[in-house]
């Protein structure tokens, strides 16, 4: 997948349109800036949405796909409901993030990128999310030392949740699962196959 960009004769907009969920909307952006001004975490992003769309059109492939922007999208949908051109901005952000991840270009130490992948892996195992395992993995995702520090910091929150029966240490073994895990896995595997085929067919 490394040289996928060559297929597009370096036209990054075309690449985005063919490979990124809702990417065909990018060209509709009129650069008004409403989304950037509405984004609650925009001030932390390398590039807010409006800028990302401009960069896509300007062919700045690496800068877009390796940036930490997109990964801090909280899915608040502020931008979507305000955009005068009705771009599905939230979904484009998610689509870009997913595409960057698939190509291995997502920033290695972006915490939400890691968390988002952990979440997906967690739910794929048994069809439902195991909050305890997810939390433990999250706290230890940057290594053992930092993990213990974070766990310690989060200890009181964990105790509060346990006391009110909103966290269950027994989830560490077993935990909630579907009855038909086998069927679930078969369905999801098929969906992944079809997704891969669909993307392969869209490529020039």
């Amino acid at each position: 997948m490394g040289d996928i960009s060559k297929n597009y004769r370096l036209n990054f907009l075309k690449e985005v349109e063919a490979n990124v969920e809702e990417g065909e909307w990018v060209k509709m952006c009129m650069q008004c800036g409403v989304c950037s001004g509405s984004c609650p975490l925009g001030k932390f992003w390398d590039h807010p949405p409006q800028e990302i769309f401009m960069m896509i059109r300007a062919g700045k492939r690496d800068a877009v796909l390796t940036s930490n922007a997109m990964w801090m999208c909280t899915s608040c949908y502020n931008c979507i409901v305000r955009c005068p051109r009705e771009l599905p901005i939230t979904h484009i952000m998610h689509g870009l993030a997913h595409y960057a991840q698939r190509l291995g270009l997502a920033p290695a130490h972006q915490p939400t990128a890691k968390f988002a992948q952990l979440f997906w892996n967690n739910l794929m195992k048994k069809g439902r999310v195991n909050e305890l395992k997810l939390g433990v993995k999250l706290y230890f995702m940057n290594g053992i030392g930092e993990g213990f520090k974070t766990s310690l910091k989060m200890k009181d929150i964990g105790l509060g949740m346990m006391k009110t029966k909103r966290m269950n240490p027994m989830e560490a073994i077993g935990g909630h699962a579907l009855e038909d895990v086998k069927g679930f896995h078969a369905v999801m595997q098929k969906a992944q196959e079809l997704e891969d085929q669909r993307l392969a067919n869209q490529r020039p």
Partner: peptide, 23 residues
Amino acid sequence: PDWNCCGASIGYAGGGELPRLTL
């Protein structure tokens, strides 16, 4: 009966369009 997780908003990193919609 036997409902599964919806993928939430954060499922997009690992889950592409069709797998997520299939959930």
